[in-house]
């Protein structure tokens, strides 16, 4: 049981990440002006959708064996792609980034994804059926990485491979930074929770005395109520 409890979040988060990549690629596909690029993004999105499906399947296998209370916490709700930060509230990457940065982002992250799958591979065992599935996902990621690299060098021939290297280092640092930031945020959150709760308790005590009856609508013409009121 302990093993399952520790594994569930890994598959849950990875499935989110893969589905988010699929949506990013689909968005890029719809926004490009080049039919060739559209095909590239389309095929890439399809791969990512398949990866997400694989991880959801692996999640489900473990969810079934977990206690109901725990399993309920790992149900997938699509809007959590946004609330968990896998898709930015500000929009898809292609909407926010310059094309060059976007491709560099893909280039780096595919490689980072592949390396994070190494850990999962150890977890499920290389020789298992799941292991084989993950290995094939890893080779997809490597292919995506290669494609992005080729695309990058084709479109920006003036750029040297060492410059790509810099992009990669930058993204790696960013990624690490995100993780540290996330961990700090969680730590801070734990630290501040008692304070938040105390404040909520105080606010709740005031809210108890709120009388919302005067805002009732009974016997009123709804069309005559002020359209500027937020209450």
């Amino acid at each position: 049981m302990k093993k399952i409890i520790s594994e569930l979040p890994i598959f849950y988060e990875t499935a989110h990440a893969e589905l988010a990549s699929a949506l990013e690629m689909l968005a890029a596909c719809k926004r490009t002006n080049s039919p060739r690029q559209a095909l590239g993004y389309f095929m890439h999105a399809k791969d990512e959708y398949n990866h997400a499906r694989s991880f959801f399947k692996m999640l489900s296998v473990r969810g079934k064996r977990a206690s109901i209370k725990i399993a309920r916490d790992f149900r997938f709700k699509p809007p959590s792609l946004i609330t968990k930060g896998y898709i930015s509230k500000q929009g898809f990457l292609i909407e926010k980034m310059k094309l060059k940065d976007f491709i560099a982002f893909v280039y780096t992250n595919e490689l980072l994804a592949k390396s994070s799958f190494e850990n999962i591979l150890t977890l499920v065992g290389r020789r298992t059926e799941e292991g084989a599935e993950i290995s094939s996902i890893m080779s997809d990621e490597l292919r995506h990485h290669g494609m992005a690299k080729k695309h990058f060098l084709n479109h920006y021939p003036a750029l040297q491979p060492w410059q790509l290297m810099i992009y990669r280092i930058r993204e790696t640092i960013n990624n690490k930074g995100r993780k540290i930031y996330d961990a700090n945020l969680k730590f801070l959150d734990r630290l501040l929770t008692p304070l938040y709760k105390t404040m909520a308790y105080l606010a709740g005590t005031i809210a108890k005395k709120l009388n919302l009856n005067e805002f009732q609508r009974k016997d009123k013409n709804l069309m005559n109520i002020s359209s500027n009121s937020i209450l």
Binding site: Y196, M199, A203, G204, A207, K208, L210
Partner: peptide, 19 residues
């Protein structure tokens, strides 16, 4: 406000929701 008001009647059980 309607959600907060209702939850405030069930403190401390509703503290998570209020927070």
């Amino acid at each position: 406000l309607h959600i907060v008001k209702e939850a405030s009647l069930h403190m401390p059980r509703s503290l998570d929701l209020l927070t």
